[in-house]
Amino acid sequence: MKINFEHHQTAHCENGVASNLLLNRGLKLSEPMIFGIGSGLFFVYLPFLKVNFAPGFSYRPMPGAIFSKAAKRLGIKIKRQKFSNPQEAQKALEKNLEQNIPTGLQVGVFNLTYFPEEYKFHFNAHNLVVYGKEDGKFLISDPVMDFATTLSETELEKVRYAKGALAPKGHMYFPTHIPENVNLEEAIKKGIKDTCKNMLAPVPIIGVKAMRWVAKSIPKWAEKKGTKVTNHYLGQLIRMQEEIGTGGGGFRFIYGAFLQEASVILKNDELKELSKEITAIGDLWRDFAVDIARVYKNRNSKSDIYNKLSKSMLHIADLEEAFYKKLRKAI
């Protein structure tokens, strides 16, 4: 069985799954729209949580949050299910497919056979859509891939039951109700307000304040933990920033595209200007990644390089703070 489902590649997996699933049900919303309405821009720093032997940084909210928030703001209902028994999970998925329901899944990346070796980590918050089953293989639309792929029953079970932090436990989801008239204007405004609130939160581990904490920690790592550890931490920072689906620069560009679309829908020219501003900030995030990459190459780099990186990141944090303050006023 094969459901008529259009695979569209997107920049980020969760927006992509959401946008593709909604399109299948006749609601056409771009990836940036889902991202903006679902308040996808985020930053969190968890210095005591170690991921891949480095502190936890994330440029994205909790997995599932973007789609859940977007759905709530648009009046869409999503059904989410988890299963303790893998066989039941497979049965429920197959039942959905029989009823012509393309279904979103949360999966672990480590055992995704079609990914390049370097991308296979124990990261459990990836998303994809299953849209059919042919010759014993599930038909997979993974939004970060250029093309649709397949996974065998065993392969799919492995990724649905990946273990460790954020274990998916067979998590599957699909929209059950889409309102006839969606109030896009209201949803956009709510999404923007929430993003500004998070990024300007008066908490040291979230938003602009968390960026500053990381920035100030860079020279301290170098002093206390040495070059090798510091470079690894910085590497983790770039990977969280620019790897498929997560993002610093990449996310700013998606947000820029969102603001551009939003300026037309809300007839608000200021948003168009702010779109340009966040695009410029995105460029700075990418320059920052290039600077970090340069540190690896010249291993015996001067000691003030870490101070320079720290300053660049503080500068970005300042610009972002100003940006969110303007954005909050613009709507």
Partner: peptide
């Protein structure tokens, strides 16, 4: 805004290689 494809980026490759 529009979209475009990229086959890769050196800065990111450096981070992956290090890891």
């Amino acid at each position: 805004y529009t979209t475009a494809q990229s086959i890769g980026w050196e800065a990111k490759k450096a981070a992956l290689d290090e890891s």
